[in-house]
Each structure stands twice: as structure tokens, then as C-alpha cells.
């Protein structure tokens, strides 16, 4: 059973004025079969947490640990983390001009699976996965994310999730910018991924609307760089009704300090 364990994580971002601490002690454990939702106001550090787990070079872990099945994630390079079974669906997927989506997907699948997928079954697999996400097959020949709409980018993040089958998936605001249909399609993709019970999901979101499609087992409220409250899915309903007002004090205190 896959387990991602984050303990007392402190993370700084490199800015022009020097390092700035964003995460101030995050504790979180995600096990296979579980879906965790992290909800929090803009600027509270949600993306910083996801980048730190994925190993983005701009974010420095100053203390704390991250382990995947006991292995030290922080000692791994970005690509090693992905091959170890971590996946980050990015809030702003990056455009890579001149690299076709199909070439990219195959290269990634080869790296993660440890061998090149057999061509015939691979073509079918990609076609089926694209079909399930209502992605036009023509996208396969387009450059990675180049000129894609926000919604198209997010669908392709979930396409990668489906093909790479990581142990733990972190979805950073995958719901933002999606219209009603796209939100449904993307959510169904996540639910299919989660159905086997062999993967863990960390769903980062600002709004509750995706939680009408994906039912979290745990909800965490994130403010000022840490988890300030945890509960079951009823916590999401409470946030829906009350917003983040209750946590605004924490956020403000942190930003003025």
C-alpha cells in the first residue's frame, strides 16, 4: 500500500529579495485508496506544497521530511520522484513547442514504466484514454500544451494521469477554469483512476464545486502555509456555506508578520 508522508515541512521560495518562507510546518499522510482535499484561500501556499513535493528547483525545503513508502523523496531528482510514483497535475501546465503530445506521452510512459510500451497496444491505449476525456485525436500531433485552452490543458493533465498510473497523484486546482462539461469529464477521469483503490489522491482546490463530483475522504483547510483544520467531507460543506472568513485572521496575521 502506497503511502506519502509529509512531516513538519517548511519551504521557502527564492525571490529577488532573498528566500521567503511560504510553508510553515505541513503534516499530511496520504494512503492508497484515500482522497484528500486541501482547500484554502489564494496565496495560502497550496501550489507551493505541490511544487515542493514534485521537486521544483525554485522551492527550497528548509526542514521537515517527505517520504514515499519510506523512501526519502527529498533526496530524489524531479524525474526520479515521478518514476517512484508521484504525479503532479499542474495548475498551469507548461507549453513545450515543437514536441508533439504523442511523442511526449510515449517518452514519459517509457520512462515511468521502465520499458517502451508495445506500439500496437500503446496506440489503442492512448486512443481510448483520449476518448474517455473527450479529447480530439488531432491533439496527439500538436505541440505539448501549445495554444491549448485552459480546459484542454487540464484534460491533458488527466490524460497523463491515466496513462502513467502513479501511486500518488496531486491535482493542483485542476478544476479551475473548467466549464460544467469539462469539470464533469475531468472528475470522471479522476474517479476512474481512483476506482481501483490502489492510488492516493491529493486534490487541491479553492472552490467546493469539484467536490460534488469527487468525494473526498478527508478535507483539510490550508491557511498561511499550513493545515489549520482537518475533517471529513462535512468540512467542505461548511466552507461552502461560510467561505474562508473564519481563517482570514490567520492568513492576515501571517502576511503582516
Amino acid at each position: 500500500m502506497a503511502t506519502l508522508e509529509i512531516k513538519d515541512l517548511h519551504v521557502s521560495v527564492n525571490t529577488d529579495e532573498g528566500p521567503k518562507e511560504i510553508l510553515k510546518g505541513v503534516d499530511l499522510t496520504i494512503k492508497a485508496g484515500e482522497t484528500h482535499a486541501i482547500m484554502g484561500p489564494n496565496g495560502s501556499g497550496k501550489s507551493t506544497l505541490s511544487y515542493a513535493i514534485a521537486g521544483h528547483p525554485k522551492y527550497q525545503v528548509t526542514s521537515g521530511t517527505i517520504t514515499l513508502d519510506g523512501e526519502d523523496v527529498l533526496a530524489m531528482s524531479v524525474d526520479e520522484r515521478a518514476r517512484a510514483g508521484l504525479f503532479l497535475a499542474m495548475q498551469y501546465p507548461v507549453e513545450v513547442p515543437g514536441v508533439s503530445m504523442s511523442n511526449f506521452l510515449r517518452t514519459a510512459a517509457t520512462a515511468v514504466r521502465g520499458e517502451a510500451p508495445k506500439l500496437r497496444t500503446w496506440v489503442k491505449e492512448v486512443k481510448a484514454a483520449m476518448g474517455e476525456l473527450d479529447i480530439d485525436p488531432a491533439f496527439a500531433e500538436r505541440s505539448v500544451n501549445e495554444g491549448f485552452s485552459g480546459g484542454e490543458k487540464k484534460r491533458h493533465e488527466i490524460l497523463q494521469l491515466a496513462l502513467l498510473q502513479p501511486k500518488i497523484a496531486i491535482l493542483d486546482e485542476t478544476d479551475s477554469g473548467l466549464d460544467v462539461d469539462a469539470l464533469r469529464v475531468v472528475s470522471e477521469g479522476v474517479n476512474r483512476f481512483q476506482a481501483s483503490g490502489e492510488h492516493g489522491v491529493l486534490l487541491i482546490t479553492h472552490y467546493t464545486r469539484i467536490l460534488r463530483h469527487i468525494t473526498p475522504d478527508f478535507v483539510h483547510v490550508f491557511a498561511a502555509g499550513k493545515i489549520v483544520e482537518s475533517g471529513g467531507k462535512e468540512l467542505a460543506d461548511q466552507l461552502e456555506a461560510e467561505g474562508y472568513v473564519k481563517y482570514a485572521g490567520i492568513q492576515e496575521a501571517a502576511t503582516t508578520s
Binding site: 521537486g55 524531479v78 524525474d79 515521478a82 503532479l88 513545450v96 511526449f104 520512462a111 502513467l164
Partner: peptide, 18 residues
């Protein structure tokens, strides 16, 4: 770009070539 490709498991040297 390198980060994105590496975050999909593609080793750094291969990502640069891509």
C-alpha cells in the same frame, strides 16, 4: 519546460534533447 518534462519521469538529459 525541463521541470514539466522531468515531472513526467523523463530524465534530464533526455528532456533537454526533447
Amino acid at each position: 519546460q525541463l521541470f514539466y518534462l522531468q515531472a513526467r519521469g523523463i530524465p534530464e538529459d533526455q528532456a533537454r534533447r526533447l
